[in-house]
Design a protein around this nucleic acid. Sequence first.
DNA 1: TCTTCTACCACGTTTGAACTGC
DNA 2: AGCAGTTCAAACGTGGTAGAAG
Length: 549
Amino acid sequence: MVMYLPEERPVLDLPYQMNHLANNYGYYPQDCKEPICRTQHSTNGRMSSAEAELTSLPVHVSLQDRELWDKFSGIGTEMLITKSGRRMFPSCKVTVTGLNPKVKYVVIMDMVPFDNRKYKWNKDCWEVNGSTDPHLPNRFFVHPDSPAPGEKWMQYPISFHKLKLTNNTLNSNGLVVLHSMHKYQPRLHIVQSPDPCNPHNPGGYLRFTFPEAAFVAVTAYQNQEITKLKIDNNPFAKGFRDNGLNRKRFRDKETQETQDSDGQDKRDLTPNEHAVGQSQKDEDVDVTVSSSVDCSRTLNFSDVASSVTPNPFISAFKNLSTTGGPSPQQTHTILSLSNRHLNSPREARPSSLHSLCAALPMAQSSCVQSSTADTNLSRLPSQISSPLNHHYSPASQTPGRSIIQLQSYFPTPPHPSRQCPDMELPLPLPPKLSRMQLPESVLRNLEMTPVYDYINPRPFTDILNRIHFRPLDSGPTGKGLQHPHHPEQFLRGSERELRPQIYPAVQEYIDQQFTLNSMLNSQTEHRSQMDYVSARPLTEYYCEQQTGK
DNA sequence: TCTTCTACCACGTTTGAACTGC
DNA sequence: AGCAGTTCAAACGTGGTAGAAG
């Protein structure tokens, strides 16, 4: 096994392979992977050890549903923004590999201007319509599972389907605020948990932009082709398929027209049209389009059940157990974890982000050290044999985790894109995604991991936004308000250092922990409902974790 | 007059509580 | 009593549309 220690690798000496996933898009290049060297605590520009660790890891982020994104971007992606907030479609879903399995990360997404132009739709194409309006301060969508250890993030594609876009600058519901008729691109932030032992070492930070997912924010769709694509691919828009003829309004109108025209418009379908219509209906029944899996690559249940290796995860681990190492297809550089990484106090003691974690519901925090998955596994033994048991993983085979187990995680990040080069199989479905694709009973079997409590993930987002906005409120000349002159993916090195747009939010959070704690304490009602981990003192919690209670 | 935005509509999906059966 | 499966209604997400606003 090829082993690289972090210090042996120059920062950003990354493997430059493309993802084997034809459906995905890999982002390795320096252009897009940006280590942020903050200046607050390391003004000399040298990375802290945590930063060096994070940036030296072969972190790889892939945008999922590449084909779908390509279809949209080929036409000119538009995203609807409304006052109350509108989800993105396609939604941003990414796979991450190369993280330290045991270190906790916060995963955040925001939207950054693609350029400094305002657009307008002119008949059949987008035209530049002047310069941009003043860029709104970023608002971050913190993934509701945050913070979670790297293994959790690498286990399934990280979906941001709950991210909502709005044009309402007054909203306080954690929506991402955009200008209509402006072009944006999603940006992913991976923030490593700070080192609690060293307040001057607040953790690493990486961010990735996705130019392929750039879109124009609109309040009403301009391009009918985009509308059609959305209708065809978004399950929520099924009611608009077949040219919307299955909608009551259209049916009524159609009926009235046919009556008015005395049968003249009552078309007799040709056999071909009958066939097409039937085919479309059949498609609706058999091929369920999902936002999480590309339609063209969706296998139906029987296909999956009859396949030899139905679960790439299981297959991966089988390979691991037989070969004792990564598969030949695994082309990315292996970075071993020394014991200091695996057993560092970072994992054992509360950190600032652990406190942040405390603001999240129990279910979201429990993945840190608990063995809830094990519990679930033992509760549902019959599901282990299920060919669709997507949650089956070595981590849940044995209760309690040893260093040996931890190390077995890292050499083979169980990412299907690495283990399933032909990708005939769909990606394993995370809990509660694409339920419609499989029978309910099967999907119930999938839900072995603790049901994530998505109850109101917003306070965390709001807290982060509030913190971030505080310095921005000082004046419009703040860096956060300045519009970038170049698309961010072209910025490098020192340019990036000068424009840390998000980490200060986290950093300031760390600095203002006590303020936040008091804010959180004011939410006792909320906390009591959700049984937060940190409803108890953090020291108590970690003592229990240490003693194995 | 044109462009942009908003509110409402009907339809499909998702979710979770209530119910039923073992 | 407890668990698993089913049913159903409310909530949510969707694009279409008409009309308002600038």
